[in-house]
């Protein structure tokens, strides 16, 4: 991890017009994610986490402030960033390998290179035997791994992950978390992970940022000082995990608010 800043939000504010009045989703958000760092963003529903992700990927422009990726101001979709959502967004008419190649195909990478990259990723994610299958023939966990492969295939420097594992069962989630952690480490990728799962935030990240209720602001920043960031299963058993989770619960006022 170097001190180079890969992803930065500078004084980002986002307002939406809703029912005739202006609604502030996020207010004055400053985030800087260093090269190779994994930062989690947690906060109550509707606090504007996904808005920040859309701004980072260039799909929406902030009302105020700017986002930067690799030192360049984000003014639209760009090849440095790729995102992954809770929904796998696989195309049912494409086989697994064709789905993985979707992004590189759009970006105009040569066919032989596309296939080479996709095959390498499928092997890394233990999907090589399924490259000719269609999405409906796969389990939810496998589909999400294909989505991860598609995200990595465009070789982004920054990954924006919006609750990527919240739709899979608990055991599959742990396996996927470990695969993500290992992949990020191996490829040296920078990631911003949005999650509701406090344990996921603690075990996968170098830092956790806590957002307030709307209008969303960053109200706390917690550095996770536990070794083995590439092995969340091992991290789970570390004695300090409970302390971090408790602090997050405290900051989120969990227990104080009705669910």
């Amino acid at each position: 991890m170097s001190d180079l800043i890969r992803l930065e939000y500078r004084d980002v504010t986002m307002r939406f017009a809703q029912a005739g009045q202006s609604l502030t989703a996020v207010q004055g958000v400053n985030i800087a994610v260093r090269d190779g760092e994994v930062v989690s963003l947690i906060g109550p529903s509707g606090c504007g986490k996904s808005t920040l992700l859309n701004i980072g990927s260039g799909l929406t422009a902030p009302s105020e402030g700017q986002a930067f990726v690799d030192g360049e101001r984000v003014e639209g979709p760009n090849a440095h960033v790729a995102f992954m959502l809770q929904k796998d967004l696989l195309l049912p008419w494409r086989t697994v390998i064709e789905n993985v190649m979707f992004g590189v195909e759009i970006q105009g990478v040569a066919p032989a290179e596309r296939r080479r990259r996709a095959q390498a990723l499928l092997e890394n994610l233990k999907l090589a035997d399924f490259s000719g299958h269609y999405p409906h023939q796969l389990s939810g966990g496998m589909r999400q791994r294909v989505a991860l492969a598609r995200t990595l295939a465009v070789d982004p420097t920054v990954l924006l992950l919006d609750e990527p594992f919240s739709a899979v069962d608990a055991q599959t989630r742990m396996v996927l978390q470990r695969e993500l952690a290992q992949t990020l480490k191996r490829a040296g990728k920078t990631a911003l992970l949005i999650t509701h799962d406090l344990l996921e935030a603690v075990t996968l990240s170098d830092r956790v940022l806590v957002m307030s209720r709307r209008p969303g602001r960053i109200i706390d920043e917690i550095a996770i000082d536990i070794p083995d960031r590439d092995d969340p299963l091992k991290r789970r058993t570390h004695p300090n995990v409970a302390g971090y989770v408790n602090r997050l619960m405290d900051r989120l006022d969990i227990g104080a608010v009705p669910a």
């Binding site: 990927s57 799909l59 639209g76 979709p77 090849a79 959502l85 979707f102 970006q107």
Partner: peptide, 12 residues
């Protein structure tokens, strides 16, 4: 699904 369109847009 608009998210599918956004996915494609994110890939430019």
């Amino acid at each position: 699904d608009p998210d599918l369109i956004n996915l494609a847009r994110a890939f430019k």
